Simulated scan of single mutants.
Amino acid sequence: MAEIRTLHDAVAELIHDGDTVAMEGFTHLIPYAAAHEVIRQGITDLTLARMTPDVVYDQLIGAGLARKLVFSWGGNPGVGSLHRFRDAVENGWPRPLELDEHSHAGMANRYVAGASKLPFAVLRGYRGSDIPGRTDTVSTVTCPFTGEELAAVAALNPDVTVVHAQQADREGNVQLWGLVGVQKEAVLAARRVLVTVEEVVDALQPRPGGVVLPTWVIDAVAEVPGGAHPSYAAGYSVRDNDFYQAWDAVSRDREAFTAWLETHVHGRREAVAR
């Protein structure tokens, strides 16, 4: 059952050195505030899992907290490369980064297998790709009914999944709506779950297309208005496109990035810890 906690306390309790952590949200509802709290607390040696890692993981990688990235495509959406990510891969700064790369379908199916408590998922994919030769989480399986050879991907069960949503009620039930990705699957696949929300309300109102995460699959809820910035929360905020464009220059330079981190993350401890 979920408890309403401060962001600081929830992160300290649920995320530990060496964990596999999934922070999901597809261009929308990305849990930036939670990631910044991880940086402030210096939680390290993390395996970061995410479909389409973007700026939020660029920041965690640049802060030196990641030892491995499990992902499908990475970039600054609409702008270009993730330069802290590239620096880690190409130059080992601030530390070397191990990669486990997948297709979008492969990552989604890994979460589904994890959520279903199955050891692997089956899909048609990866043919003609060199990815299976570079990871031990892709293999093949022969269909017992047709004899067809299919791709198999190992289940992904994060130690912790972190997502951002619009609302939670006081019992810890959560509702998110608008553009969603694999948040539900990543939550159900995880051993522990932290959800940050725009607001805690007395009762959730049904929304067309809304996804409800029940309190019994969540460990902690933290109220963090604006916790998805610079991404957006439908009904609460809009995407800060200027930030994504400005990030390109900040992230290209190690000193500029370090100064940004000190000012906008370490220097804003009280602003986001609610």
Rank of each mutant, 00 (worst) to 15 (best):
A49Q: 07
R84N: 05
V182R: 01
R252L: 07
R110W: 00
M107G: 05
G235H: 05
A168L: 09
V79P: 11
A34V: 04
A115I: 04
R192I: 05
F145G: 11
L48Q: 07
D130F: 14
D100V: 08
V21E: 09
R170H: 10
H16S: 14
G227Y: 04
L7D: 01
R274S: 12
G106S: 03
E270M: 14
T263M: 10
R124C: 12
V217W: 08
T44G: 12
L99W: 10
V211H: 00
M23W: 00
R254L: 10
Q175H: 12
G147T: 05
A152S: 11
D58Q: 03
D219V: 04
D248G: 04
E185L: 11
D242S: 14
A63G: 14
Q41S: 12
Q205Y: 11
L194D: 00
G181C: 00
G235I: 03
R269V: 12
A35I: 02
P53N: 06
E255D: 15
Q41P: 12
A222W: 03
V141K: 11
D17P: 11
D45R: 03
V55H: 07
A12S: 10
V56F: 08
A203K: 10
D45H: 09
W260Y: 14
K184T: 09
V56I: 11
V211E: 11
R269H: 14
A121M: 00
W247P: 01
S237A: 08
R5S: 15
V238M: 05
V193Q: 06
V180Q: 13
A259Y: 08
E185H: 13
R127D: 13
H16F: 07
D242F: 05
Y32E: 01
W93M: 13
V180T: 07
R127H: 12
L97G: 01
D169S: 06
H28P: 10
L194T: 04
L7P: 04
D202T: 08
T44I: 08
K117F: 11
R40K: 13
Q167Y: 15
G172A: 05
R269D: 14
L194G: 02
T263C: 11
Y111N: 09
S251T: 03
E13S: 15
A233M: 11
T135K: 09
V180P: 03
D169Q: 06
W73N: 13
L176P: 02
N241M: 13
E13W: 11
F120L: 07
E198V: 02
S251G: 15
A66Q: 00
P53C: 00
Q167L: 15
D242G: 15
C143V: 04
P208W: 00
T20V: 15
Y236A: 15
L82G: 09
L48V: 09
H164D: 06
V187K: 05
T47Y: 08
L194A: 07
D54S: 15
L99V: 05
E3S: 13
H104D: 03
T140R: 15
A66L: 08
P214H: 14
